[in-house]
Amino acid sequence: MEKQQAAIYLNSVTYRAGEKEILHEITGTFAKGKITSVIGPSGAGKTTLFRLCNGLLSPDSGRIQIDGRDILSLDPISLRRQVGIVLQQATMLEGSVRDNLALPLQLAGEDLSEEEAARIVQEVGLDTDILDRDSKSLSGGQKQKVSIARTLLNRPQILLLDEITSSLDRVSKQDIEKLILQINREYGTTVIWITHNLEQAKAVADQVWVMMTGEVVEAGTADLLDHPEKEAVKQFVKEEEA
């Protein structure tokens, strides 16, 4: 993959939390306009990688480029609007769904119009009735959809989804999968998502990254999971499918 086609390009990125090395010299590319699944066991550093790309953390060494520009040359606020992240816990602020959706606009000093609120909830597959519901009363699947809608309101070019389907039932998982494909196709948004589910990783991705103990052990097209080269990946796939 050529560097200029990269939505995100990482070059020897290392991140430590205290003495512990969480990511070790990660080098690779997330292709522009594509969907990439990032898989790997817990503790592989997947979430840390996302937080580095959204600017919530900074690497100890190495460089990250977003759309060809060094992350450190970007203003943190515009970086975070450009690289949206949906965190695993789908944190809801106190108040209604509408209040939560209005948040990214309020942070930029704008208001959320009624039409925009209705459009975005419908886009993520929710009814407009949900707008007035207390955000804390939503189901796990609804919270994740509202979280995605909230991040989408910033119109990010790159969307990072951190294990957003891990605690959802089968129907909600399928809804989210459809939504990811829809966001990618309609807006050309680059989507990178972490999942534990290999079937999901293959079905909803153009590319796959397999991470283990802070390193990318294999990366390529989605069918690499059917024929992994590295022994560690073969073992991981076998365990996950068991």
Binding site: L56, R80, G84, L87, L107, R150
Partner: peptide, 10 residues
């Protein structure tokens, strides 16, 4: 979590 959410949204 709430603080990080707001930062992550810009």
């Amino acid at each position: 979590e709430e603080t990080e959410l707001i930062l992550s949204l810009g």
